[in-house]
Design a binder for these strands. Sequence first.
DNA 1: GGCGTTATTAAGTATATACATAATATCCGA
DNA 2: TCGGATATTATGTATATACTTAATAACGCC
Lengths: 238, 238
Amino acid sequence: MSGRQGPRGRPQGWQAIRDDVLARIRAREWPPGAPIPHEADLAEAYGAARATVNRALRALAEAGWLDRRRKAGTRVALNPVRRATFDIPVIRLEVEGRGMTHAHRLLARCERPATAAEAERLALPAGATVLALETLHLADDRPWAWECRIVWPKAAPGVREADLTAISVNEWLVRNAPFSHGSIAFSAVAAGHEAAGRLGCAPGAALFAIDRTTWAGPDPITEVRLLFAPGHVLSSTI
Amino acid sequence: MSGRQGPRGRPQGWQAIRDDVLARIRAREWPPGAPIPHEADLAEAYGAARATVNRALRALAEAGWLDRRRKAGTRVALNPVRRATFDIPVIRLEVEGRGMTHAHRLLARCERPATAAEAERLALPAGATVLALETLHLADDRPWAWECRIVWPKAAPGVREADLTAISVNEWLVRNAPFSHGSIAFSAVAAGHEAAGRLGCAPGAALFAIDRTTWAGPDPITEVRLLFAPGHVLSSTI
DNA sequence: GGCGTTATTAAGTATATACATAATATCCGA
DNA sequence: TCGGATATTATGTATATACTTAATAACGCC
């Protein structure tokens, strides 16, 4: 949490109000569940306009510290749900961001009809053909992540023609097939024989997995499972 | 992405501007890296005040779609970094949210000097005494997560006296020792013998792990490792 | 007392205006 | 031509004002 800095490194303006309110919440001056003064009162107390106070309180509400409802007023959140946010960049950038060099190999590429399960999950029309791709991402020439993906070419025009050995599907899609929404799930899975072979680890090793599905409006673009080499850690600050 | 709804379910006001700008970005009318019109121009184009346009563009910048810099103007983000945000509630609420009943058992509790590694990680004073706790969380009477935690009582006054069999440490800390910041990391680890025993799974099974450290200003509050029973999935929408 | 209508309230949004700030662009002198 | 001072510019923030909206509270009727 930062902001415009005043003479002694303290934020000014709405960020100062935000920080002061947060300090009072932390100090239990306004305990969880308790209502805090109205915007108008706070505005007067801080000698600021209501819009400025609104900006500060809105920021705290977005961060999960306050619950705000029209007419009901503003209350300190009862269950201080903390949000962890993870940036999900292109794999290449993730690797390079750790000071390693990235490379990828397109291990397999074929067009085939979607399986029943895939068609179900992605709401694909019956008998739809998908592009199935298998990519190995390398960091400093060592296996980093194994990517198994299906793409629905209808929702990603141009994939068929793209040279996916030069640019990874991952990156191609990010740049050429913007999605409107999707889901992401993290889990831990035991390496199967195939994964173990790809990633150069023992079968049964604990692997970090990311499953992601993305959509462009009503159309599914892609579904992917990423299995990372053992030891992978996804971290963030809260 | 939602907002105030107009007659046909379409957002109004600044959210309409946000959605329109986003649509143009998606349609490549403003391709990645390209500058978009100035706030003042957009305001005129949309027939709105600059503050309203500002609100819309700020929202898109926070979501990672735009890069904004004073004087330099506003550009479509070159690397559309998508952010996944996870709510990190109290474990009890997470379990109950899935329609199961939560219970916990305090397996161990002792006060001991911090190990060298712990003191290092948490910047504890030499020879500091920490409270070490081991808790098993149950969902519908089946193991859900195994929690190994150390707490620095100095930064969490009252923990020593708290009845941690009635309320889990997890929840006690959330309610009584608000933190200012911290770190969180997700990974996959193989179950050791102890974890396997606690969670009722085979040794070597792939477990989803969350490591978290929280601070109250300069003081470390707690460090915890959560190992979830096999099959645990952390999901979110993006 | 129970229930539906109305009044009130506090947040949400929109606007015009003004000034601040951080980059960039320009200019000018050595 | 280089480097530093200066002007310019787009965003960032603050303000007063006004109106909207959702939810609660009050009211009055039956």
